[in-house]
Nucleic acid binder design. Structure first.
Lengths: 213, 213
DNA sequence: GTCTATATGTGGATAGAC
DNA sequence: GTCTATCCACATATAGAC
């Protein structure tokens, strides 16, 4: 039997609960998900959950922060690779984001919704936690705005306002988490879809069509 | 006093309730909205609501169908105007859709979420009603796929798969209903945003950049 | 047609056995 | 650490007065 890694604050118990909760919230939404629903997915009763979390809202916020952390941790090194030309850099960022919407569907769907839809308002949470979430989102968007801005300055992207372009661009990608059905997507088809989306989105910004087939 | 128009199935009482419900559902989500919340917005008690609607789910479905009807009713004449060049036709369709996300924010946000996010699963509804909603959505998407297909055939759009391109395109537009704050948008700024979005989205599909500034 | 009760069910959270 | 049992608040829906 494998010994679970004793990472502080992320014991095996919590991690399992978090996964189950992400799945449950994805399926039914925050308000419609009961603690019994989550417990059922664990094959346990809610007594177990309350041993690790004080309240349903706490689990939810943990799912959201985990999802956002996955996004930022993956994007940051791509966004700060200044030696990569802006169009390629954006392509990789878009590809990663699109891929995560599918490979980490449950966490991402919960996080994206919480952040953008002001669904955090549904959840009783401390103001400091809410501020943290909003700050993370703004920082994340800025990575995209920055690379778009650099691309327009170098005349490889058409002349768009970076902050305005970021909205439809991330909207198109985030939308994946809403229609994508994790039951119907193997690894290969997910990769193909992420490729198509990255080609499409970055292609829409490109000024030269030299590489167009 | 004005005599209310006696349109069958849409009396003044029902209409008022529908508007209040759309606002409430937009603010708190379906599950978190109580009948008392809706009644409060009406300055009444829930006894009034139950005089017109048998159940909360019925109101919700009415909001969804109203929103989808607004979308389709506006898009259909634009999509079937075959004398208009595909790029212009798509521009008008995109512009209308983007505008509706803002001018009819509450109904559209509820409808879009219900349809795309399988949030209909949260609501107890007859299968026939669910089928109606899915059919309306598919028909709507097809209008966009058709005009994109025509544009690619005429070589005014770059070579994309119409059905694949429809997803990010509508995703970018639908996303507006999530981040747009109806409190902070007068008519002029809404028009400007719809213009920018239509320019951006259609510009991303265009093959020639002749009209680029 | 709109109100004030109220019946009834569900779900978050706790207490305490094991 | 996980369970069962239970408390209690809240929300849907109904009954019946006005």
């Amino acid at each position: 039997m494998n010994q679970p890694l004793a990472r502080p604050g992320a014991g095996a118990g919590r991690r399992e609960i978090l996964e189950a909760a992400a799945t449950a919230f994805t399926r039914r939404g925050y308000a419609s998900t009961s603690m019994d629903d989550i417990a059922d997915l664990l094959g346990a009763t809610k007594g177990r959950i309350y041993h690790y979390y004080r309240a349903k809202a706490d689990i939810f916020l943990d799912v959201v922060l985990t999802g956002m952390d996955e996004l930022i941790a993956g994007i940051e090194p791509l966004a700060t690779a200044v030696d990569v030309p802006p169009a390629d850099r954006l392509w990789r960022m878009v590809h990663y984001h699109a891929g995560l919407m599918m490979t980490r569907h449950s966490f991402q769907r919960v996080a994206i919704q919480a952040v953008e839809m002001r669904r955090v308002g549904e959840v009783p949470a401390r103001q400091s936690t809410l501020d943290t979430i909003i700050n993370l989102r703004d920082r994340y968007e800025q990575y995209f705005a920055d690379v778009i801005e650099e691309g327009t300055r170098q005349r490889v992207f058409r002349k768009v306002a970076p902050r305005v372009a970021t909205k439809p661009l991330l909207g198109a990608l985030n939308w994946i988490s809403l229609w994508f059905d994790p039951e119907r997507g193997d690894y290969a088809s997910i990769q193909r879809l992420a490729d198509e989306f990255a080609d499409f989105v970055v292609g829409g910004l490109r000024l030269t069509r030299a590489s167009e087939p």
